[in-house]
């Protein structure tokens, strides 16, 4: 019994130490940390994960603030070949900007939103994560598609 308990304890410690954090940033070429202007610029096969989504792009600029001696990303901007995976949805575009304050993602340029049941395309996508709301605009703004998802389940 004691042996099993110790085995469980050791395994728990091992997995907690080796498991991935909720958030990470990967880059294939460079990561520039500008502590004067409080931002990070990642270049080449960028992969960024936070507690909300996983994003892929060629370049990323993330601004941060310092709170209680911790750095927190406030605005994350993604450039070129942007793919954002959010639950069962995939957003694509040429440019994206995520704002932590209102938890929204705005994608522009050949935007698409793909889910198991639909594929929509347009020029601009505004994804309001907290309110489960997606607004897809065309380039000329003549047609507008607003998709309001089931709001029962909060993200």
């Amino acid at each position: 019994m004691i042996n099993k308990f110790f085995l469980y304890l050791i395994l728990s410690i091992f997995f907690s130490l080796t498991s991935y954090s909720d958030s990470y940033l990967k880059a294939g070429d460079t990561l520039i940390w500008d502590s004067g202007n409080k931002n990070y610029t990642a270049n080449g096969d960028v992969e960024f994960k936070n507690e909300k989504f996983i994003a892929y792009s060629d370049k990323m600029i993330a601004n941060y603030i310092e709170e209680n001696n911790k750095e927190i990303f406030t605005i994350v901007e993604l450039f070129d070949n942007v793919v954002i995976e959010f639950k069962d949805e995939i957003f694509r575009g040429n440019h994206a900007i995520y704002t932590r304050d209102d938890n929204t993602i705005i994608l522009t340029g050949d935007v698409s939103i793909e889910s198991p049941t639909r594929l929509l395309t347009g020029y601009e996508l505004i994804a309001d994560i907290d309110n489960n709301k997606r607004i897809l605009n065309s380039a000329d703004n003549e047609s507008l598609v607003e998709v309001l998802l089931d709001n029962d389940e909060k993200n």
Binding site: Y24, L25, K26, L31, F73
Partner: peptide, 12 residues
């Protein structure tokens, strides 16, 4: 400014 090079992995 610090420029990190190569395969960068930043665990936040």
């Amino acid at each position: 400014i610090i420029i990190f090079k190569g395969d960068i992995e930043f665990i936040i």
